[in-house]
Simulated scan of single mutants.
Amino acid sequence: MRPAELPPLFSALATAGADPFAAACAEAQKGCDAGLVTYDVAPDQLRAAVVFAPDVPLTKAMIMLPLCGIGFQNAFGTLAPPEVSLQLEWGGGLQLNGAHCGGLEISAASRAPEAVPDWMVVALTLTLSSDAKDTGVTPDVTTLAAEGCGAVDPIDLLDSWIRHTLVWINRWEEDGVRPVHTEWTGLAHGIGAQTSVDGKTGLFQGVDEDFGLLLQQTGGAQIIPLTRMLKDAP
Rank of each mutant, 00 (worst) to 15 (best):
M1A: 15
R2D: 09
A4L: 12
E5W: 08
E5N: 13
P8Q: 12
F10A: 06
S11K: 12
T15R: 08
A16V: 08
A16D: 15
P20L: 07
A23I: 01
A24D: 03
E27Q: 15
E27C: 11
Q29Y: 00
Q29L: 01
K30Y: 00
G31C: 06
C32K: 02
G35Q: 08
G35V: 08
G35N: 09
L36T: 08
V37K: 04
T38N: 07
V41L: 10
V41Y: 05
D44S: 10
D44T: 05
L46M: 07
R47W: 00
A49C: 02
V50E: 02
V50S: 01
F52Y: 11
A53E: 07
A53S: 11
A53K: 09
D55E: 10
V56E: 13
V56R: 10
P57F: 06
P57T: 03
T59L: 14
A61Y: 02
A61T: 01
I63S: 05
I63Q: 01
I63L: 11
M64Q: 10
L65R: 01
I70A: 04
I70D: 01
Q73V: 13
N74V: 15
G77C: 06
P82S: 11
E83S: 14
V84A: 13
S85K: 13
Q87D: 11
G93P: 08
Q95I: 13
N97D: 15
A99L: 07
A99Y: 08
H100R: 14
G102H: 03
G103T: 05
A108I: 02
A109P: 01
S110Q: 01
S110M: 02
P113D: 04
A115V: 06
V116G: 00
P117R: 03
D118P: 00
D118A: 12
W119Q: 01
W119F: 06
L124Y: 02
T125Y: 00
D131H: 09
A132T: 08
K133G: 02
T135M: 12
G136W: 14
G136H: 15
T138W: 15
V141Y: 11
V141F: 12
T142C: 10
T142W: 08
T143C: 10
T143V: 08
L144W: 05
A145N: 01
A146G: 04
G148E: 10
G150K: 07
I155D: 02
D156C: 14
D156T: 10
L158R: 02
D159S: 13
I162A: 05
R163P: 00
L166Q: 15
V167K: 12
W168R: 09
I169K: 11
R171V: 01
W172Y: 14
D175C: 11
V177S: 05
V177N: 00
V180Q: 10
H181K: 12
T182V: 12
E183V: 13
W184D: 03
T185R: 13
T185F: 09
G186Q: 05
G186S: 05
Q194H: 03
Q194G: 13
V197P: 02
V197S: 04
T201V: 07
F204I: 07
F204R: 04
Q205D: 14
G206H: 09
V207G: 04
F211C: 07
G212M: 07
L214K: 14
L214C: 12
L215F: 09
Q216S: 15
Q217Y: 01
T218W: 04
G219E: 14
G220E: 04
A221T: 13
Q222L: 15
I224A: 06
L226F: 08
L226V: 05
R228M: 06
M229T: 15
K231S: 12
A233L: 00
